[in-house]
Structure formats: C-alpha cells, structure tokens
C-alpha cells in the first residue's frame, strides 16, 4: 500500500529552489497535501509575495498571482471580492514571509484581518529577511545577530520584535490565528492539521484565518539544518509559543 506520494498539487517534475534544509519546502508540501485532501486545486487562487516565498507559483499547481512586496492580503482581498461579484466563490490564500506580512505589509495584513476578509494568510517566520541575505526583520529576536544588527538586536537601539499571531488574534475580524513549527514529524503533522483548520475557516465563510509558521533559515542563521531545528525547538518556541490564539470556527 502506498502511504506517501508526491502531492498532486505540486507541479510535475518541479524541484524546489530553496536552500538546503529550508522549511519552505515542507510548508509548501503540506499546503499542497491539504489542497489535495480538500479537493481545492481547481478552485484555488494563491497569492505569492516578495522574498523567498515568491516562488510558490513555480511549485504549486494552482492558479497563482504574485503580489507586490507586502500587499498580498490586499491583492487577495481583490481576488476574493471580484470572484464573489460574479458569484463564483474561490478559495484564496496568501503565502508570505514575516517581513512581507508583518513589516512592509502590516497595514494591508492587519486591515484584512480587521475587516474579517474571508481569506487565509500563511506567514513563514524565519526571524530575518532571508532572500536579501539575513537582515534584521520585524521578528528578529532580542540579541539575534543579523547583518544589520551585527552586535545583536537590542531593545534600546533596535526596538522590539512583533508577535504576529498574537497581534492578528486581537483583530475582531480574525476567526482563526495560530502559530506552528516544522522542526520534527510531530510538529509537521500538527501544522498540517492547523493549516487545514485555517483553510476550512475560509471554506465555511467564517472570516480571516491566519497561520504563522516558525521556519528554519539554515543559510542565514549559519547553522546546519539539524541545529536550525534545534534552535526553533529550544529557543524560538519560548519566544514565539506554539498555540492557537484565536479560534471561533466552532462557535
């Protein structure tokens, strides 16, 4: 019995172009699995963004639109509303990094949540700007060494990071907000369950759903894939706890 195969929603013969050990690949893989399980492939419009997450459209075999940096939730709003105007509901989700969602795009992200826009946003949080080579981002942790906080992030000099899933949970229009990680099998399976729940939130017309995924960035963290996962398990989850911060889907 075949217990595992390449998800149908992954493009044939596609090869991920992320760095060695990067969790983006796992995130896209489980999203594809959920799209298959919920039979959403023919009804999905995915919105990719700027940064490492932009390349989603090369791997995911669904209709895909790239948004300008930070604007994915606004673009998703337009997509969702336009199809609704022609009475053709589509499943619309964004795939963004933490810089995209929570820094340059915080206004678009948060207002989509505040409006209760019926879309799902997935945010890969790897605590730095990965594609540009590891600069300090909105989620870089206190003391974190990056190329623009070479002496470590410092609250007096650099200020505080954002806990995105907690902030988004505060918005009235948010119906589901959670943080997950991908550092081991148990967490990957749990992340899949949670993302599926976020997708179902939209499918049931509940409103804005959000999942922040703590992800490794071995290249810029200058750690092996194994040590990157260890860092997430032992350090990052203490700062960014894994939890469901809001869930009204059963209300």
């Amino acid at each position: 019995m075949q217990v595992y195969s390449i998800p149908k929603s992954i493009k044939e013969n596609s090869k991920f172009t992320f760095c060695k050990g990067c969790d983006h690949g796992v995130a896209i893989k489980i999203i594809a699995e959920i799209i298959d399980e919920l039979n959403l492939r023919e009804n999905t419009i995915a919105i990719s963004s700027s940064g490492c997450s932009v390349l989603l459209y090369n791997f995911l075999d669904v209709d895909c639109l790239e948004a300008p940096h930070g604007r994915a939730c606004a673009v998703a709003t337009g997509v969702k509303r336009a199809h609704r105007a022609k009475k053709d509901e589509k499943f619309v989700f964004t795939y963004q990094g933490d810089g995209d969602f929570a820094s340059i795009g915080l206004s678009e992200s948060m207002h989509s949540a505040l409006r209760g826009e019926n879309i799902t946003a997935i945010c890969i949080n790897n605590t730095n700007y990965g594609m540009t080579g590891g600069q300090m981002g909105p989620t870089s942790t206190m003391g974190q060494l990056t190329t623009t906080s070479p002496l470590g992030r410092n609250k007096e000099y650099h200020g505080f990071p954002i806990k995105t899933a907690e902030q988004i949970a505060l918005c009235e229009g948010t119906q589901f907000s959670a943080r997950v990680a991908l550092y081991d099998v148990k967490n990957i399976l749990n992340a899949k369950k949670i993302i599926k729940k976020a997708f179902e939130c939209q499918l049931n017309n509940k409103g804005f759903s959000f999942v922040e995924i703590l992800s490794s960035c071995p290249t810029n963290w200058k750690l092996s894939p194994q040590d990157s996962h260890k860092k997430i398990a032992e350090e990052l989850t203490k700062i960014y706890p894994l939890d469901i911060f809001k869930d009204t889907t059963n209300d």
């Binding site: 390449i6 991920f16 796992v26 894939p225």
Partner: peptide, 14 residues
C-alpha cells in the same frame, strides 16, 4: 518523507 524539505522522497510503500 514527512521531514524531507525537497519532496525527494517521492514514494513510501508499506
């Protein structure tokens, strides 16, 4: 297959 970030493990048969 679950942990592989590349989907390089393409099939598992049990």
């Amino acid at each position: 297959a679950i942990v592989c970030p590349e989907i390089a493990i393409e099939e598992v048969t049990r």
